Computed example of a mutant assay.
Amino acid sequence: MAPSNRTTPHPSTFILLGIPGLEAAHGWISIPFCSVYILSLLGNCLLLVVIKTEPSLHEPMYLFLSMLALADLTVSSTALPKILSIFWFKDGAIHMDACLTQMYLLHSLTTMESGFILAMAFDRYIAICNPLRHSTILTHRTVAKIGLGVVLRGVVLLAPHPFLLKWLPYCGTNVISHTYCEFMALVKLACADTTVKKAHGLVVAFLTGGVDFILIVLSYILILRTVFKLPSKEAHLPTLSTCGSHFCVILVTYTPAFFSFFTHRFGSSMAPHVHIIVANIYLLVPPMTNPIIYGVRTKKIRERVLRVFSIRGFPAVS
């Protein structure tokens, strides 16, 4: 459907443009997007099956990882089908309620992802800095409470977003220069003072991803301080290697997240298609890479996956 302008302040339908400036290449761009989606579905489903069926993986770290996998699956399935329909069928039309629902789900789920990564950092902190109390502090009951708290935080803090956007006047255009419905992309369409909405978005972003990242950095500072106090230097690397997978997930998740966040709000001189591509990387790549990182680097998961596929003869690398 071709983009069109609206004069009504409350349009019933928005038009998702895709990647501005690269419309002619949407067909080619859809190939890596579709591949990422398929790998995300396969990787996270396999990870969930492995964790559920392997009793030795019923530990806090892997339980938090399974929660992260569920959030990743939902994020991918919320965004990708509509993105692919834009690329393949030029079907960018999306009802306003569906757009607000997608926006709410994506923001709340990415907030949950950040919370689960923080929970995994807390697990590594307890395991390394207070190993004798790890099993008594992080019981299954405590893990469940932490997981529920992360979910409720994402649900409650992001709940005002759809209502803040619902009744804004969109008297200029109903065309969203993006591949999915995003809070700031909708705010920029409004022909009204959006200072309060922008401030609310910044506060929520800081209270979720910002605070999570600060706490993760603090946990790793404490971990490093504990590790380098060990009397044997030979013990440093094996101890830190237990954090390797988690550290890779942090880099993959937060690097494009912060880049996308700051460029959307302060990078007005950046080419639109660059921002949109980074925003899609932030949303779609971590769900694909997270199960790969843990599958490759975690011996228990790797061995279980090989047993699932009845593969023999692979060396077990710690």
Rank of each mutant, 00 (worst) to 15 (best):
F14G: 05
K198E: 13
I15C: 07
I51E: 12
H236A: 01
V151T: 12
I301R: 10
V49M: 05
I281L: 13
V305Y: 09
T111H: 04
F14T: 04
I137P: 01
M1H: 08
S108W: 07
T255L: 15
M1C: 08
V204Y: 00
P315R: 10
T179D: 01
V203L: 13
L148D: 03
P286I: 03
G172H: 11
D123N: 13
D72L: 04
C191Y: 04
M184T: 10
G154A: 03
I311C: 07
T74F: 11
I293F: 05
F183S: 02
I117G: 03
G295F: 11
P169Y: 03
G313R: 11
R297A: 12
A144K: 08
A257M: 12
H200F: 14
V196H: 09
T263S: 14
L84R: 04
A2Q: 12
V49I: 11
P160Y: 01
T7F: 07
V187E: 14
C129G: 07
P169H: 02
L240W: 09
H273F: 14
T208K: 14
L168H: 03
I311N: 05
L57S: 04
T208Q: 11
S56H: 06
L16S: 08
F266A: 03
V274I: 11
A192T: 10
V296N: 05
G209R: 15
L16F: 10
L157T: 09
V305W: 10
Y104N: 07
I128C: 06
L118F: 13
I311A: 07
S269I: 06
A192H: 07
V175C: 08
S40T: 15
P81K: 04
V211W: 02
I277Q: 05
P256A: 15
P81R: 05
I221A: 09
S12N: 12
F116D: 03
R133A: 15
S318Q: 14
C34H: 02
L202H: 15
A144C: 09
L16I: 10
I117W: 05
T255D: 01
S177W: 01
A271H: 12
M1G: 03
G210L: 03
F259I: 15
G267P: 07
I281W: 08
S30A: 15
M270A: 07
Q102R: 01
A271K: 10
L158A: 06
T226R: 15
R312P: 00
W167A: 12
L46A: 08
